[in-house]
Design a protein around this nucleic acid. Structure first.
Lengths: 160, 160
DNA sequence: GCCTGATATTTTAGGCTTGAAATATATCGC
DNA sequence: GCGATATATTTCAAGCCTAAAATATCAGGC
């Protein structure tokens, strides 16, 4: 006998499940829209790519340099991936690898002066673009949204 | 003479600007974390990729089939990209191209029965994973967050 | 019919991305 | 010191991704 509509536990999916799926789809779409727009503008205005911008952004915050593995961990991409992007940035003169320290395996990566100068220009444009692209979100909501995502990330990092 | 702290207009960036930049970074990180997790699981459990899943998901919702350009528009990726993914799905027997209609340029793409069967299995797992991965977000917040993103997308589509 | 411009798709070159294998170096136990 | 294990990075193969060029077809104007 199943007395049906009495606070079913584990019988049917929670009401929130479909909502989470919907949220994920919207999160993904929002990110793709903005990312696509940024990619186009970086290409048009600075003849560069989002991954290059990301690497330079990470290095800008650490004038003392980063290891390849730090970059990889920070950007959430694989080691091999970073190698290629940094290779191209080095051959364009925006990034340098130095092999000091006692450890001969590691290479410390940092921006060259040309890299710093270029990044500062790009960062200013990037901030304007974000302000424009996310401009339709109310400032009060920006804050709430941002806090929710921060909380998500905190929880994630505790579990992983 | 600049009488400083009097509702400056256009003098310094709005307070909300940095907040929007921060929001964007968090949006991007959240998406990357979840996307990475989904990619790994799709690979491990079904030996497939996220782009393939996305294409199959789009086709599942349209048993009557879609044009290549519909797929490309819906998934927010380039035409050429879709060609490659569909090619591989076709050679694996999960998708078929049919060339009917009067228009000899178009090709209607749809899932094969094997594709439908596979997708249904993957979709069930996918939904469980999302429920788990976004589980730390309160159900009430899921709803608000989701609505904010829907509103963002509506605004975007009006302007573009 | 034929030309012109628009539409649907594929091809191409170059860069991004991953996971796994390969290299090189470091560290620890003994 | 030596061997085993761990760490840092690069290389590799395969797939994803874009923008732009190339193909093919369609739809109108004449």
């Amino acid at each position: 006998m199943m007395n049906a509509p009495l606070s079913a536990v584990g019988q049917k999916p929670e009401r929130g499940d479909k909502q989470r799926l919907r949220l994920w789809i919207r999160l993904l779409r929002t990110t793709r829209i903005v990312e696509g727009e940024l990619r186009e503008r970086l290409k048009r205005e600075f003849d560069t790519t989002l991954p290059r911008f990301d690497v330079m952004s990470a290095l800008y915050r650490r004038p003392e340099g980063m290891l390849m593995s730090d970059l990889s961990r920070f950007l959430l991409v694989s080691n091999g991936n970073v190698t290629g992007i940094v290779d191209r940035l080095v051959s364009d003169g925006f990034v340098m690898r130095t092999k000091k320290e006692g450890d001969k395996r590691t290479s410390v990566v940092r921006l060259t002066p040309a890299g710093v100068a270029l990044f500062e220009k790009m960062a200013a444009a990037h901030e304007r673009w974000i302000t424009e692209l996310l401009g339709s979100i109310e400032t009060a909501e920006v804050h709430r949204l941002s806090e929710m995502l921060r909380a998500f990330r905190s929880n994630w990092e505790i579990d992983h």
